[in-house]
């Protein structure tokens, strides 16, 4: 899973030469063998490295605050979204939905690595949602639809259909 995600990220970043990744441990944590020095371990570490390699460091945030927020949400992705037990998915959706109420992107007002990795991470959850649930988590759905249409992001993942007109308007706002 993480490996496909990293290969999509490479394409998304416009990196021409695909890297070869290994995994380690029971959880199959991705590992990138670095030519000079110690291997890079973990999704966020490798992703940040790829961003630097592609010279797209704006994706890590433009100001100190933005960079901190990007890191915060990358951590959230790894710590909360990945390996999240089924009965806690709703909590994540609720948190995200609340957070995205007044935001178009996760950090600041621009598209960052936090959007990309959160999109990759949450895709498996959103794809399972019924229409009613997508409407309940309207802000997540709107953000998700925007990111999946962001040029070059989607790659390995199937598009999720999002309705513009609410079918159950009497429900949650």
């Amino acid at each position: 899973m993480a490996l496909r995600e990293l290969s999509s990220l490479e394409k998304c970043l416009g990196l021409k030469k695909p890297n070869k990744y290994g995994t380690q441990g029971e959880r199959k944590v991705p590992v990138l063998q670095n030519n000079n020095g110690a291997p890079l371990v973990g999704l966020v570490t490798i992703a940040s490295h790829l961003v630097h390699e592609a010279k797209k460091t704006v994706l890590l945030g433009n100001s100190a605050e933005e960079r901190a927020v990007v890191q915060q949400w990358l951590e959230y992705r790894i710590a909360r979204v990945d390996n999240c037990p089924k009965d806690e998915l709703k909590v994540i959706l609720k948190e995200l939905n609340h957070y995205l109420e007044d935001k178009v992107y996760i950090a600041g007002n621009v598209f960052t690595l936090a959007d990309i990795l959160m999109y990759y991470g949450i895709h498996r959850i959103v794809v399972e949602l019924a229409i009613q649930e997508k409407e309940r988590y309207l802000n997540v759905t709107r953000w998700f639809d925007h990111i999946q249409h962001y040029p070059g992001v989607r790659h390995h993942l199937p598009p999720v259909v999002v309705l513009r007109n609410r079918v159950y308007p009497s429900g949650h706002h």
């Binding site: 394409k11 998304c12 416009g14 249409h149 040029p151 070059g152 989607r154 598009p159």
Partner: peptide, 15 residues
């Protein structure tokens, strides 16, 4: 959605 997918697979990312 399919249209976008088609268009973007040809365009260099971020351009």
């Amino acid at each position: 959605a399919t249209q976008c997918a088609k268009r973007h697979s040809h365009a260099p990312p971020f351009l």
